[in-house]
Design a protein around this nucleic acid. Structure first.
Length: 316
DNA sequence: AAATGATACAACCGCCGCATT
DNA sequence: GAATGCGGCGGTTGTATCATT
């Protein structure tokens, strides 16, 4: 290979930085319909001005239906610690043992909490940070469980007019995920990590996908939005439905209203009512794609409709 | 109230390994 | 067997937010 690798995408033609809600919706919508057999081709097909890798990453780390967010339990942390001891920085392998957790997230937790905590425990109380950490050791486990988050929760009133480029990074809105988590936790005890993880060593395999990558819908609640900003939901929905997405790089103002998240929180009820396949057991993976396709397409439409109605965006 | 530092985490980058041609 | 394409992985960076001074 003397020529070196061709870049995976034309860096000048792709958008970088945080994902806007509209992009998220578009990606979710596309994957729900078509799966993700080819990441490289996906952005084009979906009308996204993104690198395929970026799409993949966004999907795996954030938009996947079964991605668990926040609320690292003590057990999970302990598992990470012991797995890291055994495996080292093989985050994806570690992630495969922790259903719903992504390698990226685990990596972050390790780097920001566990590593410090361990070094402190090991007597490396090298001072400030560690002592800090010690006082917040509760944090590490519960930092993700809603104690700390309180403090880190975005304050919707603080709206400065930030460039929307930080939307997703800052719109973690982690706690809104709790509602999902509740739903998910219903079957979180399923033998996921046993069979699945042996067969599917990578973190991406936790998702409710068929072998072709098609996905049983979740609500795009995972969408990162900025509660501070005044999101134009209609625009986002329009974008999703548009065949082309030419100006996504600049055209989408990813501004959500904080209420939007509350609304999404409430969505769980809708979801359960509508039999949305938020958390399909592994056995469902074997379902015939065509059979399930229509169902979740309908679900998807239902979700969009619900969203529109909640946003009062229904066609008038 | 403002400035500064620390923290958290989403996203990017580059490399590697496998599959295909 | 070599070249190429793609997905995946791990390390690192950038920046919003919170805490402290």
């Amino acid at each position: 290979m003397g020529k070196g690798r061709a870049p995976c995408c034309d860096k000048n033609q792709v958008k970088k930085g945080p994902w806007s809600p509209a992009e998220d919706m578009r990606l979710v919508s596309f994957i729900q319909k078509h799966g993700h057999q080819n990441w490289r081709a996906l952005p084009k097909q979906a009308g996204l001005l993104r690198c395929g890798k970026s799409c993949r990453l966004r999907w795996i780390n954030y938009l996947r239906p079964d991605v668990k967010r926040g609320n690292f339990t003590k057990e999970e942390e302990d598992a990470i610690i012991s797995l890291h001891k055994a495996l080292g920085n093989r985050w994806s392998t570690i992630a495969s043992r922790l259903p719903g957790r992504t390698d990226n997230e685990i990596k972050n937790v390790w780097n920001t909490h566990l590593k410090k905590r361990l070094s402190f425990k090991n007597g490396n109380n090298s001072k400030t940070d560690d002592s800090n950490e010690s006082s917040t050791t509760t944090i590490s486990s519960s930092s993700f469980s809603s104690e700390i988050p309180q403090s880190r929760k975005r304050n919707s009133e603080n709206a400065h007019d930030h460039d929307h480029k930080q939307v997703s990074m800052t719109t973690k809105k982690p706690r809104t995920m709790d509602s999902i988590q509740d739903l998910k936790s219903e079957d979180s005890n399923e033998p996921k990590e046993t069979k699945e993880q042996k067969e599917f060593p990578t973190s991406s395999n936790n998702s409710n996908m068929t072998s072709s990558g098609q996905v049983f819908v979740s609500k795009p609640e995972e969408l990162q939005t900025d509660p501070r900003s005044d999101y134009n939901g209609h625009a986002a929905l329009d974008e999703v439905n548009k065949p082309e997405f030419p100006d996504i790089a600049d055209g989408i103002q990813s501004d959500y209203d904080y209420d939007f998240w509350n609304m999404l929180d409430g969505f769980s009820s809708f979801q359960s009512n509508s039999d949305l396949h938020l958390h399909i057991p592994e056995s469902s993976y074997s379902l015939n794609l065509n059979d399930s396709c229509n169902n979740w397409e309908v679900d998807n439409r239902m979700w969009l409709r619900y969203l529109e109605s909640e946003l009062e965006l229904e066609d008038q």
